[in-house]
Amino acid sequence: MVDSAFATDDFVRRQLAAWQRDLGSVRRLADKTLEAYGRDVDQFMRFLAGHMGGPVTLASLKALRAADIRAFMAQRRSESLGSRSLARVLSALKSFFAFLERESVVRTEALNVIRTPKLPKSLPKALTVLEARQTITTTGEMEERPWIAARDMAVLSLCYGAGLRISEALALTGADLEAQVLRVTGKGGKVRLVPLIEAVRKSIDLYLSLCPYKVKADEPLFRGLRGGVLSPRLIQLRVQQLRGALGLPASATPHALRHSFATHLLGRGGDLRAIQELLGHASLSTTQIYTAVDTDRLLESYRSAHPRG
């Protein structure tokens, strides 16, 4: 591929910079997504420069054909890029060209005929209600220091009792706690309100009463041994210990508690739209995967309990 510095002319380079600013300030994509999208489109520009024999210009973008995009995707697949990563590449390209169209720079139909690679279906691995409860309650038995035991229980309670991602739980500040509601900042800086049930509230209050460090209202609540912001790796290691102690499957992780939150709510008649809001999913289709999990559980129960199963 052509070196990045010579892949595009000044005009296209300015458009790329404007697109990335738009992703960050308007669409507020997560930093990792911004980085991945920028890398994907940069690789495409480098490929296109080599493919067309010179820096990519506005004329190059206007002349773009579906065959050019397919050639790029084929090259990326030959480099052992999986279907999920290829789908992200295509999403990045569509985002960039949609931006160019909105800015009245160029319009192309080439991307509209490119099919998104088929993604392997992988259902979330949820724990049973008993396993989820044991994961939280046993945490306190594996730590001699009461404040650290209370801290870890509070974090895991947030994952299961409020459906938070571990990053969301560790980012919570005192200002995010209200009497009965949590203010959660999710992916892309999007804020949602999640009910704070009594069990979760009590676990947080216990931790705060035992924590030896004074935490300001605008600072993350959860602290490490020396008072710094708690690393997610420590919670992951704690759950790894619990897997061994309780005989849980390898799929039992802090994130599995979030999956369990959604699955158990759905199993008890929870509304799919409400669960979408609680999880902070941008699209209902993302939440709908839990209906498959719940169906699988129902079928498993049917087969094990039915006399002719």
Rank of each mutant, 00 (worst) to 15 (best):
G161D: 03
Y290E: 06
R14Q: 15
T287F: 07
P117S: 05
S260P: 06
S95D: 11
E219M: 09
E198S: 11
P117D: 04
V89M: 14
K216F: 04
S95P: 10
F44M: 08
A74W: 01
T137N: 08
V215Y: 08
A87Q: 06
P254W: 03
A126Q: 04
G174W: 01
I289F: 11
A92H: 14
G270S: 09
A305E: 09
T135G: 02
D294I: 14
S285Y: 09
F261K: 07
R238S: 11
H281K: 08
A30N: 01
A169M: 01
S104E: 15
L93T: 05
P249V: 04
T33S: 04
T263C: 09
L193G: 00
I166H: 02
A252M: 01
V181K: 00
A282F: 01
A199L: 07
V155R: 00
E109Q: 15
V155P: 00
V194M: 01
A74E: 12
Y213V: 08
I197D: 07
V2M: 15
L298T: 07
Q240W: 06
Y290T: 04
T291M: 09
E141M: 13
L182Y: 07
A274V: 09
L230M: 09
L266Q: 10
A150M: 11
T108C: 14
Y302N: 03
S251W: 02
V129R: 15
T295D: 14
A7W: 11
G244V: 08
F72A: 05
Q75F: 05
R88D: 03
S85A: 14
G174E: 04
R39G: 02
L193F: 04
Q288M: 09
R268F: 10
E143C: 12
F44G: 05
H255T: 01
A256S: 13
I166M: 03
A150W: 11
L16A: 06
Q43R: 14
A132F: 02
T138H: 15
F11W: 07
L242S: 00
I114D: 11
A149S: 12
R133Q: 09
V200L: 02
D294R: 14
A110I: 04
V106T: 15
F47M: 05
A179R: 10
G161C: 07
A262L: 02
Q180L: 03
K62E: 11
D10P: 08
S91Y: 10
